[in-house]
Write a protein that binds this DNA or RNA. Structure first.
Length: 285
DNA sequence: ACAACCTCCTGGGGGC
DNA sequence: TGCCCCCAGGAGGTTG
């Protein structure tokens, strides 16, 4: 479900409930998600104040007042909801309750916000580590640059892809190359850049890589603006659905006409490494 | 080292 | 209606 724009939307929704407030209660309802919770996870959250809520790629990073960082990855179906919060204009909202059987973490914050983490497939995970260990943590150690950040630029991408034989689609899904893209935004960006998903990474000209960088940035920025994409279960913390799925040009549009002006091609679908790829064979080369 | 799988897990949708 | 198969936003681990 959640790629960078969805995680950023969740971050922006959670921030008013978390930042500057203390965690009054915390409870996990099972021992693990994708991985076990760290030792004494809930107990170590209780009493802490959240100083800042950041994001790195698809990870949420809550910086706590004791120097620890509480990490959440949403996996495929992970969802944070805010329930029963204050009902004041501009404050929090009330999310539709999700299936309680899949509610795995519950927090109560100062000022009355109740936060629930719900994840039917349990591909999500959480961790709690010292801020000083963040860079060396296995999740982040080999991670590539933020696609919307200053270090994602042509010289970097040229170097990262040079001599790579993998198809460009696979390379962009590799979080070591660039961190935060997933299946949807990769295929959308490749379509905008006019690059075929199967194109060998190391054989794309500088000019076309420059166009790809611009396409990645544009699609992510537009998707954040739209509150992400909702296919089935993704929602923001207040239950709101994203709307970027209405602007997909290729994703899940097999057989439909290409959106590129004067192209007239038809969108194709193929499966590579178990993941669906959508593209227009006419304008993506 | 690299690329192409398989896997974890649940639920929704389509076909019969 | 029911059942079975396929599919899904991620990504670590295993093969070859």
């Amino acid at each position: 479900m959640p790629e960078l724009p969805e995680v950023e939307t969740v971050r922006r929704g959670l921030a008013p409930a978390l930042v500057g407030r203390r965690i009054l209660r915390a409870r996990t309802k099972r021992a693990d998600l994708r991985f076990p919770f760290p030792p004494r996870f809930a107990a170590r959250l209780i009493g802490r104040r959240v100083d800042a809520l950041g994001r790195r790629a698809k990870y949420l990073l809550a910086h706590l007042d004791d120097g620890a960082v509480w990490i959440t990855h949403l996996g495929m179906t992970g969802r944070w909801s805010i329930l029963g919060a204050k009902r004041q204009p501009g404050d929090f909202y009330y999310a539709e309750p999700t299936n309680p059987a899949h509610t795995h973490v519950v927090l109560e914050m100062e000022e009355g916000a109740r936060l629930e983490f719900n994840d039917p497939r349990r591909f999500g995970y959480m961790d709690l580590i010292a801020e000083s260990e963040l860079e060396s943590h296995p999740f982040f150690k080999a991670m590539g640059p933020e696609p919307l950040g200053n270090s994602f630029h042509l010289p970097y991408l040229q170097k990262a892809l040079a001599s790579k034989k993998a198809p460009i689609k696979a390379a962009l899904l590799d979080q070591r190359v660039v961190a935060g893209l997933g299946n949807i935004y990769v295929v959308e960006a490749l379509h905008r850049a006019g690059i075929a998903p199967a194109k060998v990474s190391g054989r794309i000209s500088a000019q076309r890589l420059e166009k790809l960088i611009r396409a990645i940035r544009a699609v992510l920025e537009e998707a954040i603006e739209a509150g992400g994409s909702t296919l089935s279960d993704y929602a923001a913390v207040d239950g709101a659905q994203g709307s970027f799925q209405q602007r997909f040009r290729v994703y899940d549009r097999e057989g439909e006409g290409c959106a590129t002006p004067d192209c007239g091609g038809a969108i194709k679908r193929a499966v590579h490494s178990g993941r669906s790829t959508f593209w227009c064979p006419r304008c993506q080369r």
